[in-house]
Amino acid sequence: MIRGVIIGALLLLFGGLRLPIESSLTEQHRSAYFHQARLGLDLREQIGQLGFLAALSGFRSLVADVVFIQAHVAWERTEWGRVLLLFRQATTLQPRSVLFWDMAAWHMAWNASVAALHDEALPNDLVRRKAQREYIDLGKDFLERGIKNNPDRPQLYESLARLYKEKLQNHAAAATCYARAAALPGAAEYDNRFAAYELSFAPGHEREAYEALRRLYDLGEHERLPTLLTRLKFLEEKLGIPLYERIPDKEK
């Protein structure tokens, strides 16, 4: 009995001693963007009791993978509502996986939106276009939330830039996203160039775009790619740049 009391007291004492260490480590994990998953009751309802239990027992990532594979199967069957639901679960369980956010956005903004546009079951073209737009917005929402969870990685900024460019024709926003991606470690070398290209298509940003393209041009031969030269020439004409400041015509 006395031994039991002593052990109990020692256990609590040890708990008290490690408390600040554990709290500090948890904080460090959070600041390194770990454990951002929020395992709430709504998620339990979605993934079932067993999946929720597994997620709580240190197999969050594994459960997320299973959900991701289910989403893949749902995509193969073109069950778009289920794809959306499953990707929401997968990204909630594993918010640090860029792949999940990216795939979710791609399925919504590219695949589901096109499927909606050609959906014969919808009554008319107006409804089809509305559904298409809703899926594109869902894709954008996935990418924006993905960026909030992974602000240190360039991939999702690049994907959002592509979405703005190809699906929403918002070139200024695409340029901003490419520029943000370019500022992050591990960014693709074309991000800076693409930011300038997109700016050159954005009405009202011609001067800014010209300066960005010119800066790239001045970096040397390796940046003087055909698209860059074409856009630069176009802007020189549009902005009425003096002849002596223009790039040589042979580069046209």
């Binding site: 454990h35 240190g58 969050r60 640090r96 996986s97 860029v98």
Partner: peptide, 10 residues
Amino acid sequence: NLVDDIVAGT
């Protein structure tokens, strides 16, 4: 449980 985040690229 560091591996969840390591696999995700952290």
